[in-house]
């Protein structure tokens, strides 16, 4: 076709369609080409200095030795360095001392949140709101004491509630009376019949003469508004009185076990967790 090009001298490529539609050879400006070659060169440079094509099971590191994971680790080290400043201070302090310092306790709360979520949140809720059978830890009621040392002890050694079942010793009506008496206690009501049963069955031995409980053995305060086994009320009280808590002889007994974390977590972590728990509600 080229030898009998009907449009000579106009620099066409010899591609001609429909008699007169033809492709001209107009090269693009030189500098566009140069930028294109420069881009190609850049690709080569990039390939050499950065990790690019995988060869074997690892990409070659590149001349600069840069990798994403390295940068990530450097970033982590940077964060650790910032944390170290606080961690070093906390290390030698008791929970009480951390709480006395607003800056350090804010740091502790912020930094141990993940640990709380991993270890505590499953039962006590992400905000300490508790769950059926598991106590609220965002309120001001503490079964075993709310001081920071007591909280640390609860986390490290765990806790195991204990209340005998009275279903076999008491009649239905007696349990009814006792349950109503316990419910009335929080509202400040008098009930001589209930009181008599409370004394006769030695409930006072653990819960105290006035029903205010005993933190040394985890016996609940019956006079406050908070229920250990929420939702509270006569039904809940009946169930607990009849079947007890962690009472081996009664299969319907309530369960109340806090596992010990002393093996799983370091004392430093437990101290920080105790601060976190302490500050959940105050």
């Amino acid at each position: 076709m080229a030898d009998k090009n009907p449009f000579p001298g106009e620099n066409n490529t010899g591609h001609i369609w429909d008699d007169n539609i033809r492709e001209l050879n107009n090269p693009i400006p030189r500098w566009w080409m140069l930028s294109w070659w420069a881009s190609c060169a850049w690709v080569l440079i990039y390939v050499v200095i950065y990790p690019s094509f995988p060869i074997g099971d690892k990409p070659p590191p590149g001349l600069m030795g840069w990798t994403q994971i390295k940068e990530f680790k450097e970033g982590m080290a940077e964060i650790e360095a910032i944390r170290a400043k606080y961690e070093d201070q906390i290390k030698g302090m008791t929970g009480e001392q951390i709480l006395a310092d607003p800056g350090l306790s804010d740091y502790t709360v912020a930094s141990v949140k993940v640990l709380f979520g991993d270890n505590c949140g499953a039962c006590h809720g992400s905000g300490g709101q508790g769950a059926p059978g598991f106590p609220v830890i965002a309120d001001d009621v503490w079964l075993y004491g709310g001081s920071i040392e007591k909280i640390e002890e609860s986390i490290a050694k765990g806790r195991r509630g204990m209340m005998p079942a009275h279903g076999s010793k008491l009649s239905e009506e007696q349990i009814d009376t006792l349950a109503s008496y316990v419910v009335g206690m929080a509202e400040g009501k008098e009930d001589p019949a209930g009181k008599a049963l409370f004394m006769a069955n030695a409930c006072f031995a653990c819960h105290g003469m006035t029903g205010t409980g005993n933190q040394a053995m985890g016996a609940v305060d019956l006079t406050d508004s908070v229920w250990r086994f929420a939702p509270g009320g006569v039904e809940s009280a009946r169930q607990t009185i009849a079947h007890g808590v962690n009472f081996p002889a009664d299969p319907k007994s309530r369960e109340a076990i806090m596992p010990a974390f002393g093996e799983r977590l370091s004392s430093h972590e437990i101290k920080k967790l105790a601060v976190y728990v302490h500050k959940l509600g105050q």
Partner: peptide
């Protein structure tokens, strides 16, 4: 306002929000 829990019942019967 804290989402979890929305409120907490206190021993004296008052309600606490965080």
């Amino acid at each position: 306002h804290a989402r979890q829990p929305l409120y907490v019942l206190q021993s004296d019967g008052s309600i606490q929000n965080k």
